[in-house]
């Protein structure tokens, strides 16, 4: 009785009758101010990283030895020409940061999508079939999880020649097990639900049950929270760059900008700190959105 009152349709205000679970999560997350703020900041940063370089008309790789260590605009000696200043080779830091941001976003997004697809497929299969299939797949997952991402990455990337494709492959390889685990456990509980059993009773094939009945119900909530992993992967991209196993110079990445700046930390501290701040801002906007989506998902799943 109390439960009826407390968790009736009124308790989930955003749940529109007749909309899919994905739409419900989005609608509920949209009500949170931090989601909208995060989205606005992220949209601005994405636009800036796409349009900025051509609007400003500067090159990210052109050296200008006369203008080395130019300070950013808000410090004494800063000019509008180089708003965030220049690095040890006189390259404009704003342009380098924006291009670095674009590369980071691309790598983060593509690798997250990749690990989501790979992990979900394996998790769905393991959770649906159970028994030996599950046992084998889960042991592989365990083994994969027993290697910290960084160790796997530095081993592969450090020994071979890193390029964007290998970086993405390494991240996918390191990141899929988490998805496999989550998707497996929700698949297992979903498989026991009566609507899935009902479908089996009607004679539906395994593939049909998995793709048509289970996947549309369980994957959207997982997919939204994957947004948080885009930020995580961008951090990894920066770490790789810092160690020297990321995208190779002269293409700018946050990691190499930060690493370059450390040598001049005392006389040109902005080389490291300000581009890093831009990256942190971008990550924060993604994390705010991801956090809001996660809360929305938890509210909805609890309400069901």
């Amino acid at each position: 009785m109390i439960e009826e009152i407390a968790s009736g349709p009124a308790a989930i205000p955003a749940a529109k009758r007749g909309s899919s679970i994905g739409a419900q999560i989005l609608a509920l997350a949209w009500r949170a101010a931090d989601f909208r703020i995060g989205l606005a900041v992220l949209a601005f940063l994405i636009l800036a990283s796409l349009l900025g370089p051509s609007v400003l008309g500067l090159s990210a790789t052109k050296m200008d030895v006369a203008n080395r260590f130019a300070p950013p605009i808000f410090l004494e000696g800063g000019t509008w020409k180089h708003i965030l200043g220049t690095d040890q080779l006189g390259r404009d830091l704003l342009i380098r940061s924006l291009i670095g941001l674009r590369n980071a976003l691309l790598i983060g997004t593509i690798s997250t999508i990749g690990m989501f697809i790979l992990g979900s497929t394996i998790g769905l299969v393991a959770g649906y079939f159970g028994k030996t299939v599950d046992l084998v797949l889960m042991r592989i997952t365990d083994a994969q999880m027993a290697i910290p991402v960084i160790i796997l990455a530095i081993t592969i990337l450090g020994v071979s020649r890193p390029n964007p494709v290998t970086i993405i492959l390494v991240l996918v390889l390191a990141g899929w097990p988490a998805y496999a685990r989550v998707v497996r456990s929700v698949t297992m509980s979903e498989r026991r639900k009566e609507y899935v059993r009902a479908s089996t009773i009607l004679g539906a094939s395994s593939i049909r049950v998995m793709l048509q009945q289970i996947a549309p119900n369980i994957l959207p909530p997982v997919a939204f929270v994957a947004l948080l992993d885009v930020a995580r992967m961008m951090i990894f991209e920066a770490i790789f760059g810092f160690i020297g196993i990321g995208i190779q110079p002269p293409t700018p990445t946050f990691g190499t900008i930060i690493a370059d700046g450390t040598k001049y930390l005392l006389n040109a501290w902005w080389i490291t700190t300000i581009p890093g701040l831009l990256l942190a801002l971008c990550l924060c906007s993604i994390n705010l959105m991801g956090g809001a989506l996660e809360r929305a998902r938890n509210t909805l799943l609890r309400g069901q």
Partner: peptide
């Protein structure tokens, strides 16, 4: 929630350098 959202957004390579500075 906000404290952890901010902390999780700080890349460790950058944070390390900033703290050293």
């Amino acid at each position: 929630l906000y404290v952890s959202s901010v902390l999780v957004s700080l890349p460790n390579v950058w944070l390390g350098i900033v703290l050293i500075l």
